[in-house]
Design a protein around this nucleic acid. Structure first.
Lengths: 217, 217, 217, 217
DNA sequence: AATGAATGAGGCTTCATTCAT
DNA sequence: GATGAATGAAGCCTCATTCAT
């Protein structure tokens, strides 16, 4: 009897996770296409192939769904950046690489890129994960003399604001992918690097990011 | 009789303009309170004290209204900046001053500040006026050797992105008003100024902006 | 121009009143058939031949509708009782007559009778009008020595409770119409009349009520 | 093996009864809080700590549940009244005592009081048990010359209607607990007692009921 | 021009009920 | 028996839009 119960519970949990994943996947696709405001729950369940009621079993409010999407995207992204964080010593190079990797990830998977942009415009809370990462890198860079000491909130807003605006233009096709090179270069200069070094680091990181992501997965 | 006709036509036109202004004013107030998505035409006409049908006489589509609001805000703002544009020679000081003036205007009139933020988050295109102003100042600064030559699109995205992110935090009360000083300072450094000069220019411009706006109108 | 405006407004008001009346009439019929809990707004608008949205223009909440129905019924009823109130001197006869008239009205118009019963079973407050009428008659009866002095709240609850229970059984067909004679008789005894007088007054009032209402209206 | 089977069956039956009791108890609590219309099966199973499916094993239809609740309450109440029925000779005193005991029980356990009121307001038939008890007492009272002969249906409706209305006001807090004294007194007068005797009997029964119920269970 | 009653499509949410495990 | 995921019918409510006056 014991085993029976446990096995049943495990199977149920499994099914739950699958349905949840299908709903999230469907919601991503739909929102990327129509934007969060124009998307209806009807759209999500149709795309996921489940019933209306099922949606509410998983996400009692629309907010819950957005939150799940947000988490999903940023955690997945953050995880792929793990090897980089531990493999690069120079914080200037590290920051540059991380930003270019995110740019590249969103360029190569425009659905998620667009989605991230859309969600960020609504769901108020910014990605706390990424903010903390930025602050840590900035602190390390100051400690090692790479970046000038400055108000970290200002530095963060400069970096995140510029990133967001650049991503927007890239998603809209108003600029090419290497727009990111110039943008990151300007950030590094603002943080204390010389134009020459900033330009070199940014371009190298850009190329490394694209090479890394274009390999067969 | 001729005169009579003309006078009547002029009076009619006058009334038209007034009704239109009331609708725009009402829409601003409502949107600033509830956000663009949560605002309904019902809200606008109620706030303006006109009938539903009248609204459609002036703004056949919702887009038309948003467009009018956008124009209204940015033109009003741009006009108040006219004396500055012609009265400051150093383009670095000019840029700094303009940005701080806009920050200050939105800080002192939070309704419009909030509104601008909200509207910008929708599908509305960015303010072409301001983009052109930025490009002109940047070109002048490069010509006079104040700013380093660089991709102007990147410079623009850095400036507008950082501005928007900073405005967001200021509106939300997450940072104080002088957050703007550090933010603008970083921009100027990115554009080629030394940290010392950038800091001084930004702070001076910040103080000038606040003094200018706090005078009894 | 002036006249034009006024005429228009009057016409509009007229139309409003008509639509409102149609909705109320329709709701009465539907609720009497299915009970208030089982009735949906869809039912009401279908019966009234107006659109869903129109319903909400008139009754923003379901409560508003129930309130309107309640008022409608009790005011109409109260108005028909006006001549009786002024035409009968003995308060014992008056009370008896009023109760029998209401019983009779609900017997002859079972739709409203049923409806009143159903509405009263919901959270709607009791009919303040009728409570006040009762209190006034009781006080007059005490003053003229017809009724014994007693706690008026208790007397009221006895009368209204018995009335409601009797009406219920009459609507359900569990008792015949002259059940009312015995019930009212008991009330009068409780209030101080002798059984003989109570029985005579109740029966006379019963017959008068039915004769009055069966005339060709 | 035989024994084993029987023991197992007994244990199973036991568990069945327990689960059923938990569901009934949970339903009572929930309905008393939210009213019968606002309560959902979801609420019941959540409060009982069983699964949705289990509910249907016990109560295939909602009616089945309401019926069980009704029975539960009235039988429990009726059982506590057994000693009274056999211990009081004067039917007038007996009736008075029974009514005051029920009033008091519902006053001291407002959950069940509220519940009884709510359930009664739905389509559930009245408590056949109590109606039969009333009729028996009334007949006995007539036989012994305490009550006047009259239509028993009328007497019953007077008593039950007044009781219900009084209970309503007591639950709603519109009257104090001794409202019951006046109410029962009026009933007794209607049934044939003199005002003096009715008042005394009612007050004595009221006090006896409260003393009986306030003893430590 | 202005009015505002009426419309009805469109989305949201709940919940009794089923059924495979 | 118990479970709880899934269902989908059934209501609810809002609001942009039309149109006769």
């Amino acid at each position: 009897m014991r085993v029976n119960h446990e096995a049943r519970a495990a199977a149920a949990e499994n099914r739950r996770a699958q349905t949840r994943a299908r709903l999230i996947e469907a919601a991503m696709t739909v929102i990327a296409e129509k934007g969060p405001e124009a998307s209806s729950i009807e759209d999500f369940v149709a795309a996921a192939g489940v019933s209306r009621g099922t949606f509410y079993n998983y996400f009692p409010t629309f907010e819950d769904l957005l939150h799940a999407l947000n988490t999903e995207i940023s955690e997945a992204l953050d995880k792929t950046l793990e090897p980089i964080r531990t493999g690069i010593d120079d914080p200037a190079v590290l920051l540059s690489t991380v930003i270019h990797r995110i740019f590249a990830a969103f360029t190569l998977d425009p659905v998620r890129g667009w989605l991230a942009l859309k969600i960020e415009a609504t769901a108020i809370p910014r990605q706390a994960v990424f903010e903390a990462r930025f602050d840590a890198i900035y602190a390390a860079a100051v400690a090692s003399g790479r970046f000038r000491q400055c108000d970290v909130a200002a530095a963060r807003n400069l970096a995140f604001g510029a990133f967001r605006m650049g991503q927007r233009d890239m998603v809209l096709g108003e600029v090419g992918p290497d727009h990111a090179v110039d943008l990151v270069s300007l950030m590094l200069i603002a943080f204390g690097l010389t134009p020459g070094e900033a330009g070199k680091i940014s371009r190298d990181a850009f190329e490394a990011a694209h090479q890394a992501l274009q390999r067969p997965n």
